[in-house]
């Protein structure tokens, strides 16, 4: 979804995923570059063009893999705009303390639900 929206806004997007099935699900017409690889590995990040990137988004299922990838990008490739998905919102404070910008869909959804209840 993120890749799709960014591509539709006209940004150049590269996707790195360890699953071929996930990559195959993306529609061809978006012009998104897909690469089979591991976002926590230096050489795969390089292959995906991390050195030219303006933004890095880590949205894998495992939170600690997102944190490793994000910290690697920030400290080895000196990229400041690094966004990290968090599955379990209880980890958010911890990730903030590590200097990672985080997005928690679970927290966003629960906030919306609470708002809807109180309306």
């Amino acid at each position: 979804m993120v890749a799709r929206a960014m591509a539709l806004e006209g940004h150049a997007v590269s996707i790195l995923d360890t699953s071929e099935d996930n990559l195959r699900r993306l529609p061809d017409h978006l012009g998104v570059i897909t690469l089979l690889g591991d976002g926590t590995l230096e050489q795969d990040l390089r292959r995906a063009g991390i050195e030219e990137a303006d933004v890095f988004v880590a949205v894998e299922e495992r939170d600690s893999r997102n944190a490793l990838a994000a910290q690697k990008v920030r400290h080895l490739f000196n990229l400041d705009k690094v966004i990290c998905n968090i599955g379990d919102p209880v980890r958010q404070d911890m990730y903030l303390a590590l200097g990672l910008e985080t997005v928690s869909p679970a927290r966003a959804a629960s906030d919306m639900i609470l708002q809807a209840i109180h309306r």
Binding site: T40, D63, S64, R65, A67, L68, M94, A97, L98
Partner: peptide
Amino acid sequence: DDDNLMACQVAKLR
């Protein structure tokens, strides 16, 4: 490695 890093960082920071 991601779990090892996170465990150490939580231990250190928190």
